[in-house]
Amino acid sequence: MNDNTLHARAMALVDILLSVPDEIGIYEVYADVKFELGVTDDREIRHVALEIVREMLRRGARADFDCAASVKTYQPEKTVDEVMARIEREWDALEEPPTIGDICIFEWTPEAMEADRGKTSVV
């Protein structure tokens, strides 16, 4: 699978993940890359998963590093790059692939979904 094909399939996976308002754990992104896209190398899985995460953040998903707190009241990282930097830092700290409860979850609200659709229709 070349890079272009893999990238296209990764973007399609983003569409699936963001098809309904929900919470998405980063462990679910990891599992989807591994088992849906068929990527076997751990470094490549991480690379593709982070690519998907960045796209989700770009579309408006909010990262929640502390699930007990509301995203609206607790969002120290303001930009996508800041969020990505923390995710990569915490991923590197893990000695094994992320599982449930690790790193963060992404909140995909109806408002964010509507905003994303609006941006898509304008484009």
Binding site: F65, D66, C67, A68, T99, I100, G101, D102, I105
Partner: peptide, 12 residues
């Protein structure tokens, strides 16, 4: 088992 954080954490 417990998650590192979140709703499956030790305190949730």
């Amino acid at each position: 088992v417990y998650g590192q954080r979140g709703q499956y954490g030790v305190t949730d």
